[in-house]
Simulated assay, not measured.
Amino acid sequence: MTASNSDPVPTSAPAAVTVLGLGPMGRALAGAFVDAGMRTTVWNRTPGRAVEPARRGATAARTAEEAVGASGLIVVCVRDYDAADAILRREPVAAALRGRTVVNLSADTPARARDTAQWAARHGVRYLDGAIMTPTPTVGTPAAVVLYSGPAELYRESRPVLDALGGTHTHLGEEIGRAAAHDLALLDVFWTAMAGWAHAVALARAEGITARELAPYAQGIAAILPAIFDGTAADADAGVFPGEGNPITSAAASIDHIVRTSEAHGIDTGVLRAAEGQVLRVIGRGHGADGFIRVTREVARG
Rank of each mutant, 00 (worst) to 15 (best):
D129K: 05
A117G: 06
L105S: 00
V75C: 03
G99T: 12
T116I: 07
D115T: 12
A95K: 07
N104A: 00
N44W: 07
A61G: 09
P135S: 02
T109E: 01
R159W: 15
V75Q: 08
R55W: 12
T109G: 11
A111G: 13
I132C: 06
M133A: 07
V125M: 14
G48Q: 03
R98C: 06
A36Y: 12
C77D: 00
T136W: 04
S106E: 03
R114L: 06
G57Q: 11
E157R: 10
A70C: 11
A94Q: 14
L97E: 05
H123D: 08
L154N: 10
E66C: 07
M133K: 05
A86R: 12
A94Y: 13
S149A: 14
R39M: 00
E157I: 10
V125K: 13
V145L: 09
A58V: 04
E66Y: 11
A58L: 08
C77W: 04
Y155C: 02
A70F: 07
V139C: 03
R126K: 01
S158F: 15
R126W: 06
P92W: 11
A96D: 01
E52T: 14
T63D: 05
G37H: 08
T136H: 07
R126V: 01
R159P: 09
A83K: 03
I74K: 06
E65T: 15
R89Y: 01
G48E: 00
L73T: 14
D108A: 07
D108Y: 06
A83V: 15
Y127Q: 02
P151T: 02
E157W: 15
A54T: 12
E157K: 13
L97N: 07
L154K: 12
R159N: 02
T138R: 09
D85G: 09
P92K: 01
A58M: 05
R49F: 15
R100I: 00
G57V: 09
D129M: 08
C77K: 10
R98W: 10
M38W: 13
L105Q: 04
V145C: 07
T101M: 11
S71D: 08
R126Q: 08
L73A: 10
A67K: 05
P47C: 13
R39E: 04
P160F: 14
T46I: 11
A84W: 00
L128A: 10
S158P: 08
Y81D: 04
T59D: 10
E66G: 09
G124P: 02
R112E: 12
